[in-house]
Write a protein that binds this DNA or RNA. Structure first.
Lengths: 207, 207
DNA sequence: TCTTGTGAAGCGTTTCACAGCC
DNA sequence: GGCTGTGAAACGCTTCACAAGA
């Protein structure tokens, strides 16, 4: 499925809608209106409807949206309807936290492999995943792994990205605080939470 | 210092510029042009100049920007020119990673207190910070703590936020995967990295 | 000559208002 | 009557082109 001119901002919101829908489903609901979904997420109902309209609309006028059906459709658009296997590189504090994070499964993600350069860590098993040496980081495609997660120190981030790309991943989630360069067929999303923390004081009125 | 109609997007980029400047300074540079800073960060030079122009401009025409001076000015705008003390709540996997994260100091942050509800953890010292029971989470203002970081499970996020607000924090960095409601004088920034990972498959062309 | 700073144009997103359908 | 879906208006941000200044 490939749609026509969908704003990037809309794509950013789809996972949030999914989060709201999973929450509503957890509460045993079957149907939801844009108004109600908006309340769950503190967004505008018209924003939600507009976003859905890019894909043709998912609801019934006068009624609302069927939660299960809408969930399935959004998952399909985001390609979360299949299991996405990811390789995690760097099993330090942050990497360990990612490995232990319980939130991935609901969205169809699976940390299928873990790598670290530290020989002491190699061979250990964390959360059911055996840690491999970074030298084993190749032919991930053959292992059905399409995503990479970088949780190594900044200095090692670019070489890790290079290795992941060479091994065949198509998308990278980068936790290292730097830009990484990859061929343009590969999509990178960088998360640097210090960048987010750093704008918090700006919004705080002077004491 | 309060400026006139600065786009939120500009404020989001200022910490990134700061990251580039710190990197350039690390390499021993003294001056930098918008062109060169843009190369460090893979952004557009005119975007950088435009952003700075909202504050009146920081450079010298024909020359560029003085790195040290520019760094100081951006830090001042973002209020990173003083030490910002933060309280971290939830010392699980993610909380521990945050506590151990080395990147805060450069931006003037200090994790000055850590709280957890687990009695087993209370009293232990992690990275030089003693873990306190959540019942001790009050009067943070008196301890000169203005920021809160939430790293507790989703179910406990709202009550944690309430406690932090009551204790006097002015800004919250929320790692829990949900919206939290606070008085509007308090600024919340939520980071849910599953939301970011969740849009990665969308950008990957079908095999 | 080089690089900044900035009005104005261009562009994409948000918001609105209401037609369309249940 | 109620809620969705959507063209059009409003808005804000990005990009451009060039004047201003070192």
């Amino acid at each position: 499925m490939r749609y026509h001119r969908v704003p990037d901002e809309t794509i950013k919101r789809l996972p949030i809608y999914l989060r709201g829908l999973l929450l509503a489903a957890e509460e045993g609901r079957k149907r939801i209106s844009s108004q109600q979904l908006a309340e769950y997420l503190r967004l505008n109902p018209w924003q939600i409807r507009k976003d859905f309209s890019f894909f043709g609309g998912f609801g019934k006028r006068g009624v609302g949206y069927d939660i299960q059906q809408l969930t399935r459709q959004i998952k399909k658009i985001l390609r979360l309807d299949v299991v996405n296997r990811a390789a995690l590189v760097g099993i330090g504090n942050l990497g360990s936290a990612v490995l232990a994070y319980p939130g991935f499964g609901m969205y169809g993600f699976e940390i299928a492999a873990a790598f670290d350069s530290d020989p002491v860590k190699v061979g250990k098993e964390v959360n059911g995943v055996k840690i491999e040496g970074v030298s084993k980081l190749r032919r991930l495609k053959a292992r059905n792994i399409t995503l990479g997660i970088i949780a190594v120190p900044r200095q090692a981030a670019q070489e890790t990205a290079d290795a992941l790309v060479k091994a065949g991943v198509k998308g990278i989630l980068n936790f290292a605080p730097c830009h990484i360069t990859v061929p343009k067929r590969v999509k990178v999303i960088t998360i640097d939470f210090v960048m987010d923390l750093a704008r918090l004081p700006y919004y705080i009125p002077a004491s």
